[in-house]
Simulated scan of single mutants.
Amino acid sequence: MIRFHRDPFDDPAVSCDPVSVIPDIHDPGAARAPQVPAADQTLRILSFLARQRGPAAAHAISDHLGIPRSSVYHLLAAMAAHGFVVHIASERRWGLGTAAFELAGGYTRQQPLARLGRPLVSGLADRVGESAHLAVMTGRDVLYIVEERAPRRPALVSEVGVRLPAHLAATGRAMLAALPREQVRALYPDAATFADRTGRGPRRPSELRDVLRRTRQDGYASEDGEVTLGFRSIGVAVLDHTGWPVAALAVTWEAAATALAGASVAPAVRSAADELSRRLR
Rank of each mutant, 00 (worst) to 15 (best):
A39S: 12
A195Q: 07
H64T: 13
P205M: 00
P245W: 01
R3L: 05
D196H: 10
A30M: 15
R214G: 15
H5C: 10
L280I: 15
M79E: 04
A132G: 04
D11I: 05
P245N: 07
S271L: 14
R149Q: 09
V86Y: 01
S233I: 03
L260N: 04
D240I: 01
D240Y: 01
V162A: 13
T228H: 06
D27A: 11
S264K: 05
P12N: 02
L187V: 07
A272Y: 09
V85C: 11
G54E: 14
F194I: 13
L260K: 05
V211C: 14
I145L: 07
L76P: 07
P8G: 09
R152S: 15
D7A: 09
L65A: 01
P28V: 00
A50W: 08
E254S: 05
Q52E: 15
F231H: 02
P151M: 07
Y107K: 00
L124N: 01
R152Y: 15
R32D: 12
A273C: 02
D27P: 05
V162W: 07
W253R: 00
H64A: 14
M1P: 00
G161E: 02
G199S: 05
R153E: 14
F194R: 02
A259K: 04
L43P: 04
L276K: 11
R115F: 11
Q183H: 15
Y107F: 10
A195L: 11
A170L: 09
L143I: 03
R213K: 13
H87D: 04
R3P: 00
E254R: 02
T228M: 09
T138L: 09
H87K: 00
I2A: 06
S20T: 14
G139W: 02
Q35C: 06
S20N: 09
D63W: 11
R152I: 14
A33P: 11
R149C: 01
A50F: 05
H59L: 09
G219T: 12
L260G: 03
Q110M: 13
S277E: 02
L260C: 06
G172P: 14
T171C: 15
V236P: 09
A81M: 07
A257F: 00
G201I: 08
Q183E: 15
Y107H: 05
H74W: 10
P34A: 03
Y144E: 10
I61W: 00
G219R: 13
R181Q: 12
E147H: 15
R153W: 05
R109F: 10
L179A: 12
A60D: 14
H82M: 08
T228E: 14
L143A: 04
H26Q: 09
Q52Y: 08
L49A: 07
G105A: 11
P202Q: 13
V265H: 05
V36H: 13
V21L: 07
V238G: 00
V146F: 03
P151A: 07
L124T: 03
A263W: 09
